[in-house]
Deep mutational scan, measured.
Amino acid sequence: MSIQHFRVALIPFFAAFCLPVFAHPETLVKVKDAEDQLGARVGYIELDLNSGKILESFRPEERFPMMSTFKVLLCGAVLSRVDAGQEQLGRRIHYSQNDLVEYSPVTEKHLTDGMTVRELCSAAITMSDNTAANLLLTTIGGPKELTAFLHNMGDHVTRLDRWEPELNEAIPNDERDTTMPAAMATTLRKLLTGELLTLASRQQLIDWMEADKVAGPLLRSALPAGWFIADKSGAGERGSRGIIAALGPDGKPSRIVVIYTTGSQATMDERNRQIAEIGASLIKHW
């Protein structure tokens, strides 16, 4: 067993022997301040990774656009098919120029040779490549099948209805392509620590998230040296922004954090800054 596999296998073990965790309302004060600064709703939840206990939450059962955070769930569904012998990570998928959609920095470079399922998941999570996500959605049967996968996990809230990039439209009061912070946090925890996926697939999923290259201005910008984070960000229309993450000190994750916002007129930089400040408060009061 590799060191990384050992780390993920012992996530519940280490967490069980940690000192009790206590909620700190100071972080919620910052979440509410972010709402004021952005002029928009902000949803927040913080779960203990081992027990699933909610440590703090704000608007945990209000719907927010998922945006690209759905790509972690998508690759979880792909990995479940791999575990069941219905898919192979090494299978190569070929596609054409007509398949390319807006923001496809990886797939646009491989029109000639195609990409493997493993490479597509890596591109979808680490670079948020939209064509990679659409190609992977095709392998599982489309958005409705991802929703069905989530329902089978016990998540009857999260739903995907459309493809990239239309799913980022974020129309107010439109339930399409949305989740709730509580539902997303619980589902992410199941994917990373539950028995739904094999140990190898859980490790692969967290490795992809740990290698995320496009979430630097968010929670990662607030992390002290030595902290662990595996995350996936999302951005959408109407001032929408979000991030889902597993993080913790001492090089291992111990909490799940989900943050979503929508309806702001603020710039992307300002949305990023507010999420980073929430992260800084979380870490300060850990």
Rank of each mutant, 00 (worst) to 15 (best):
L120M: 11
I93R: 03
V42G: 01
I140W: 03
Y44K: 00
I54E: 11
G43F: 00
N173H: 12
P253S: 09
S104G: 06
P25M: 10
R176A: 08
E237F: 09
T147S: 10
I243N: 02
D33K: 15
P253W: 07
K32F: 08
V101I: 10
V78A: 06
A200D: 15
D113T: 14
K32V: 11
A84S: 12
I275V: 12
E237G: 14
V29M: 11
K109N: 12
R202S: 14
L79W: 01
N168A: 08
S221Y: 10
P172A: 13
M209Y: 00
T261S: 09
R41F: 08
L192C: 08
E210K: 11
S264N: 07
S80C: 09
A215I: 03
W286C: 01
L136G: 02
S281T: 13
A276V: 10
G279N: 03
R118E: 15
K32L: 12
Q4S: 14
A9T: 15
L196P: 13
I11M: 11
F6E: 06
L223S: 06
L136T: 04
L28E: 06
T193N: 15
A148T: 14
D48M: 06
H110R: 10
R59E: 03
S233L: 02
W208D: 05
I206T: 14
P65T: 03
E270A: 12
L79T: 02
T131R: 02
I206Y: 15
V21D: 05
E175I: 14
A185Q: 00
L188P: 00
R41N: 10
R91H: 10
S281L: 12
A235Y: 02
R81W: 06
M66A: 07
L192Q: 04
V258A: 09
V82E: 05
M127Q: 12
I3A: 08
G39Q: 11
F17P: 05
V257D: 00
V29R: 08
K30T: 12
I229Y: 04
E175Y: 13
E26G: 12
A133C: 05
E237V: 10
R202A: 10
H285R: 11
M127Y: 11
K30R: 12
R118A: 15
N272E: 06
I283C: 10
A34R: 02
V31E: 01
P143C: 06
L247R: 00
S51Y: 08
V21T: 10
A276E: 08
Q203M: 14
A34G: 07
S57F: 09
S240R: 02
L111H: 09
T193E: 14
L199F: 11
G236M: 02
G236S: 07
D99K: 08
S80F: 12
L120C: 06
W163H: 09
D207P: 02
I3S: 14
V72I: 09
P181F: 00
R241V: 03
T158R: 00
R81V: 06
E35G: 05
A16V: 14
D33V: 15
G194N: 10
A148P: 07
A9N: 09
V117N: 03
R255D: 00
G76F: 05
M180V: 14
I3G: 06
L49Q: 05
L160Q: 07
A23D: 05
E102M: 12
I278S: 00
E175P: 14
M67A: 14
K32C: 10
L199N: 14
L47A: 09
R59F: 03
E166R: 11
K144Y: 13
K144G: 15
A84T: 14
E277D: 11
T27G: 04
E175F: 12
F70L: 05
G236N: 06
I244L: 09
L205E: 02
T179K: 00
V8H: 15
L219S: 03
F64Y: 06
R202E: 10
R162E: 05
D269G: 13
L247M: 15
L218G: 04
A84P: 03
A16T: 11
L136F: 00
V106L: 14
R63W: 04
Q204K: 10
G234I: 00
I3C: 11
Y103G: 06
F22V: 06
Q204N: 14
I275A: 02
Q204L: 15
T131A: 11
M67N: 12
Q203L: 10
Q203T: 12
I206M: 14
L55K: 08
F14L: 09
G52T: 05
L111Q: 09
S80Q: 12
T131G: 14
M115R: 05
D161M: 05
G242E: 01
V257W: 02
V257P: 00
A211P: 04
A200S: 14
L73R: 00
Q265I: 12
M67G: 13
A235W: 01
M209V: 01
V214G: 06
V257I: 10
S68M: 00
M184L: 07
A170L: 08
H5P: 08
E62G: 07
I206W: 13
R202K: 15
L89C: 05
M66P: 01
Q88G: 10
E87D: 09
Y44N: 00
Q88E: 13
D83C: 04
S104A: 08
T179M: 01
G242T: 02
V29S: 10
T198W: 04
I206G: 10
N50F: 10
V29N: 15
S201G: 09
T178C: 07
D177Q: 01
K53M: 13
L218Q: 03
G234Q: 01
L79S: 03
D207A: 15
F6I: 10
E195H: 14
Q274G: 09
F70C: 08
D48Y: 04
I283N: 03
I45Y: 10
D250V: 10
W208L: 06
T112Q: 15
I3P: 13
S96I: 10
L100Q: 05
V78R: 00
F13S: 09
E35N: 03
R63H: 08
K284S: 14
W208C: 03
